[in-house]
Each structure stands twice: as C-alpha cells, then as structure tokens.
C-alpha cells in the first residue's frame, strides 16, 4: 500500500509539472507566433487583426441570419471584408 501511495504521489508531482510545462509552452509558442507574424506578415489594421474584427456582434448576427435565409441554411460565412 505504501509503495502504491508513494507511486501515486510521484505521479501527482510529475503530472502537475508536465501539465504546467506544456501550458507554459502553449504560452511561449503563442507569443513567438504572434511576434513572428507581427514582424513578417502583418495585416493592415482591421483586416484579421486581433481586434475582434470591425463587424459588431449585432451586425454579425444579422449577416448570419440573412445568409442562412437566402441559402436555405446551406450557406456559410468564411470571411467578411469591407470594400
């Protein structure tokens, strides 16, 4: 019993460290990618930048409803751009 318990405690320690390490890497990978794309492939302001786009939630809902109505539920919005 003692052996199993000490094994379980070591799994707890190793497990929590691993999960923390991987999520730390998620943060690092995310930050590196943001840094790289900002430097080499930036888009003009408002075109796919992180500001949750220039389309407000209300406008988006109206556009989605209109496309669904027009296409009988088959249509799908993949991109919204202002001309």
């Amino acid at each position: 019993m003692e052996g199993i318990l000490s094994n379980a405690v070591s799994i707890l320690v190793v497990g929590m460290i691993t999960v923390l390490l991987i999520l730390w890497m998620v943060v690092v990978v995310g930050n590196v990618l943001i840094l790289l794309t900002n430097k080499f492939w930036p888009l003009p302001e408002g075109k796919g930048t992180d500001g949750s786009s220039t389309v407000t939630a209300n406008k988006m809902a109206a556009i989605v409803a209109a496309v669904q109505m027009y296409t009988g539920g088959k249509g799908k919005i993949t991109k919204i751009e202002k001309e």
């Binding site: 890497m25 990618l33 794309t37 900002n38 492939w41 930036p42 796919g48 930048t49 992180d50």
Partner: peptide
C-alpha cells in the same frame, strides 16, 4: 503591450507547432 496583427496566420501555425512540441 502586444496586438495580434495577423490572427489567421497565428491560428494556422499554432496547432502545427504546438502539436510538434507536445
């Protein structure tokens, strides 16, 4: 301090790079 200037590109590269590291 940092804004994302090309979210789509980040979102495409993120699963590839994260998957490799994990």
């Amino acid at each position: 301090k940092r804004k994302i200037k090309n979210l789509k590109a980040v979102k495409i590269m993120f699963p590839i790079l994260l998957g490799t590291i994990v």
